[in-house]
Design a protein around this nucleic acid. Structure first.
Length: 493
RNA sequence: GCUCCCGUAGUGUAGUCCGGCCAAUCAUUUCGGCCUCUCGAGCCGAGGACUCGGGUUCAAAUCCCGGCGGGAGCACCA
């Protein structure tokens, strides 16, 4: 039967098939089952949330808002490592960032407050012979894992394991001297899975509980316990943590617990920078960064400071959906979203970077130039610039246009020559139009790369309130962050 | 090396599960044009992609096998 015949036949027997199908909704997120879901976000408090962590938060928030249910904020504040230390300030910085993002959570927990629970369950595994205390060095453990060999500690008696466990808790072992490992199978195909460590010893002080504990659970164990105990229905995590799914399931099976559903998203990198909170912690200490809102950190605080709108960030993130593809995105994508929001909001001002002083020659019968605050909304009125014989224009434009006729926007046309400008006419010509100031206020622009640009901004700029976002015409969008000293943060073009 | 994940235009993304409505969606970018006294915004138009090779099938972006490419894990970090 030809295709045409098949279609004709099908139309007879199954006409519904040809009916127009409705358009699918625009969301990129696959539907979740259940309408009373429980999800969690688990930031590690080593610094404020950055743009990468925001994905985790926004996705969770979006799902919970869509399906109904609750979102739990669990500080994943186990002791970490020497490279990755929990930081007291980070707890509040994280909440602050989440609030700004519009993420709503309904419960807060701290892993550091749940240590007894982990101990209790760890001990159960030891008592049931599912785990053992291992005194191998990290190197030896690694070598065994690689070769798939069991070590001599694996088969010790339950009583012996419990005795050593008590000794660990008592503090009889020093860092690195003993760990608790789960028994999987040293021949397990995935080497990463072989007898993973569940607890280890760290004598580092914790910002919340000090030195109260020195036996700390590792991520996969604490989550296996908490995802069950806190009643999670869906667990959202980056695909780099996929092996943790397997570990959690393995542990749930031992306890006889119901499995929860895992959802993953791929790795996201911003072209402009590599994400690491701990790098920034170090640089901050060395004073290479100004603070946690330094634009180079890409923290949520820094984005807010620059005038990035939370809605823009949210849309930016939602655009990637739950794709498992590893992606590298340029920040310009975020800027495009942000521009959509702030363009109509931001009033316009003239800012002259690296000003060059010019003397106007010729007749000019205008003494006040009136320029709309917003080109698309004249109801906002005009800025008034008092015109003198002296004006400033950006150095770059000056150099590039020597000997040419250009237009001082909203004022007049000039012929540019060394340090002076001949007024040619005042009618609006179709030539290069640039911004200018007759006199101005010193202004510093903090650039995203940490550098600073300087120049003069028109005097009417003093009507702008701190935190307002404006556009410096032909320069970019900026946010006034220090009215006293006239410092603005550059957002984007 | 072992284990797992991914591969649609410059960048993201929809479509892949349940093969035909896909000569492939949308956004952004790029290039034209219009508009605008900004290199902003808006409007109109154009360009641009199924990683490769086999197989299954009347039919493959979609299913199967293999290659190639990218990522992650193999930490007593998260």
């Amino acid at each position: 039967m030809s295709y045409e015949d098949q279609v004709a036949e099908l139309k007879k027997v199954l006409p519904e098939y040809f009916e127009e199908q409705e358009v699918e909704d625009t969301s990129r997120l696959p539907e979740l089952e259940g309408d009373n879901i429980v999800m969690r976000m688990a930031p590690y408090p080593s610094g404020p949330l950055h743009i990468g962590n925001a994905r985790m938060a926004v996705l969770n928030d979006e799902y919970v808002k869509r399906n109904g249910g609750k979102l739990i904020l669990v500080y994943d504040d186990t002791i970490g490592s020497a490279q990755k230390k929990p930081l007291l300030d980070a707890y509040d910085l994280i909440k602050d960032g989440l609030e700004w993002l519009g993420v709503e959570w309904h419960e807060v927990h701290y892993k550091s407050e749940r240590m007894e629970i982990y101990y209790e369950h760890g001990e159960k595994l030891l008592a049931e012979g599912e785990a053992y205390v291992c005194e191998c060095s990290a190197e030896k453990l690694r070598a065994h894992r690689e070769k798939g060999e069991e070590c001599e500690h694996r088969n010790r008696a339950t009583e012996d394991n419990l005795k050593h466990w008590k000794a660990m808790l008592r503090g009889a072992f020093d860092e690195g001297e003993a760990v608790v490992r789960i028994k999987t199978d040293m021949q397990y195909p995935n080497p990463a899975f072989r007898d993973r460590v569940l607890f280890r010893i760290s004598k580092a002080p914790h910002p919340l509980v000090g030195d109260k504990y020195h036996v700390w659970p590792l991520l996969e164990f604490s989550w296996a316990v908490d995802d069950h105990l806190l009643g999670m229905t869906h667990i959202l995590r980056g695909k780099d943590l996929m092996i943790e799914d397997e570990m959690e399931k393995y542990i749930w099976d031992i306890f006889g617990w119901k499995h929860r559903e895992f959802l993953h998203y791929g790795m996201l990198r911003l072209k402009e920078f590599k994400l690491s909170k701990s790098d920034f912690q170090r640089k901050l200490k060395k004073k290479e960064l100004q603070g946690w809102d330094d634009p180079r950190t890409w923290s949520l605080q820094s984005l807010r400071k620059r005038g990035i709108q939370p809605e823009a960030l949210r849309e930016f993130i939602l655009d990637f959906g739950m794709s498992l593809t590893d992606i590298e995105v340029p920040a310009s994508k975020l800027y495009a979203k942000n521009r959509e929001i702030i363009d109509e909001r931001a009033n316009r001002y003239y800012f002259v970077k690296d000003p060059v002083k010019l003397t106007l020659k010729g007749e000019l019968d205008i003494d006040i130039a009136e320029i709309p605050r917003h080109p698309d909304d004249h109801k906002r009125g005009n800025r008034e610039l008092k015109v003198d014989k002296t004006i400033y224009i950006p150095k770059q434009e000056y150099e590039e246009n020597l000997g040419k006729e250009i237009r001082l926007k909203n004022l007049c046309n000039i012929m540019l020559s060394e340090k002076s400008a001949e007024i040619t006419s005042i009618d609006n010509k179709d030539i290069l139009k640039i911004q200018w100031v007759p006199n101005g206020l010193e202004c510093t622009v903090n650039m995203p790369d940490g550098s600073h640009e300087h120049g003069l901004v028109e005097t009417t700029f003093n009507e702008v309130k701190e935190e307002d976002i404006v556009q410096f015409e032909r320069y970019g969008f900026v946010r006034l962050i220090d009215k006293e000293r006239n410092i603005v943060a550059f957002a984007h073009r």
